[in-house]
Design a protein around this nucleic acid. Structure first.
Lengths: 222, 222
DNA sequence: AACTTATTTTAGTTGAGACTAAAAATAGAA
DNA sequence: TTCTATTTTTAGTCTCAACTAAAATAAGTT
């Protein structure tokens, strides 16, 4: 098995690889891990010794097959626990991350198998992120930020970037929630603000808000 | 907050104090922790510095008020998680201990409050051990091993000492489970074997079996 | 009381995983 | 291309929690 720290680094590199192409810079890892570059180098070299990452001095790091597998397993656990916390224990979206950061390191295959079943095999976590299946397959969502959508496109709110209490309350007040169907009725070219339709209601949304909403794009007839 | 190792030592000392009176020997702690006496001494001294235990060289260790509070909180978490694993995820009694050993160290007051509620405020874990409440009060059960009971006494099966699969299956086969009402019909003086009544059925029970069943004694009219 | 045995503590190491400070490599600008 | 700024790595420390080996204390026996 791998240590907590190892798992956290692997998960971190995994997330960075999702966003950027190519090898990941040591600094980027250090920054995301809230640690110093020297500490990151240290750990990266240990991970390289264990063949969990491919690492070339000064050139950057990328996960090996094995490294990806470990990272995905951790992500799966993290997201399943988040579903548990929200669905079963009635936590709010924004309260669960920190706790799931701890729960994701519990070691037991069987536990996760049963938890997954107990939760009825969810596909997405409360933030709309896909939950990898047992074999590490991730349902790739075509996820865009709302502000990148064009007029008349529609989709489903699957996640939020910001998770501050104020922002979630802003959404709650408008009854905008994960799963809501959203249609872009119009975009103001000048400031990027939008008019959107949610159920029967229409809202004016600033660009800043739109940049913090992840939408799974729906195509014709969906 | 306290480290995993600190919490484990405190819990260990707590359990030893339940069984023996007086200060706990370093060796006893080391043995239960599967570690060497020198390592135990080391940790005990750290715990003493933090005033979680009272420690006198060569004389032994006992928990302070604060130490008890920490230990009880860990025990509470452990037992609540065991209930969760058995009741919600359908684990068997004997499969949950190891996982609960990990879960008991998750740090979040709120999580435990909500878990407790989700489980409907259970009083006992699947092994029949009492779950401390939020304030650390433990419902003291008058718990005896079956083999210490006398003729015509009756009680409720609240726990098992042995947790091997074979033993639990032995019980399952006879429909003897936590919560079963058991009455001692007779004791064979020679070998300590017993005849007991469970519901409508009577069983012959060897002394060895009787020594592994914890009974909460019922008094007249209960 | 003296001696033996068992228990406990001290002293010194080890490995993870963090740190700081300094050296080395790379990248960007003149 | 050369110099400077940035990034990355190395070297050396620190803390936690374990270890071994050796010293100190306590307990039991004659």
């Amino acid at each position: 098995m791998y240590t907590r720290a190892e798992e956290n680094y692997l998960k971190c590199i995994f997330h960075l690889e999702q966003e950027q192409k190519g090898a990941i810079a040591t600094n980027a890892i250090a920054q995301m891990m809230n640690t110093k570059a020297s500490s990151a180098t240290d750990m990266i070299q240990r991970l390289a010794d264990k063949e969990l990452v491919a690492y070339r001095r000064y050139k950057g790091t990328s996960l090996t097959k094995e490294g990806v597998a470990v990272a995905v397993a951790v992500v799966r656990k993290h997201r399943l626990w988040e579903v548990f916390l929200v669905e079963k224990l009635n936590f709010q979206w924004d309260e669960v991350h920190e706790i799931a950061e701890q729960l994701e390191h519990i070691q037991s295959e069987e536990l996760i198998t049963r938890l997954d079943k107990f939760l009825d095999h969810p596909d997405y976590d409360p933030h709309g992120d896909p939950i990898p299946d047992k074999d590490g397959n991730i349902k790739k969502t075509e996820k865009k930020v709302l502000s990148d959508m064009s007029k008349n496109q529609q989709g489903i709110l699957v996640g939020v970037r910001e998770t501050s209490g104020e922002f979630l309350q802003y959404l709650d007040k408008r009854k905008i929630a994960i799963g809501s169907k959203i249609k872009v009725l119009g975009i103001e070219f000048f400031d990027g603000s939008m008019i959107i339709q949610v159920k029967e209601e229409q809202f004016f949304i600033s660009k800043k808000i739109a940049e913090n909403l992840y939408i799974q794009v729906l195509h014709k007839n969906q």
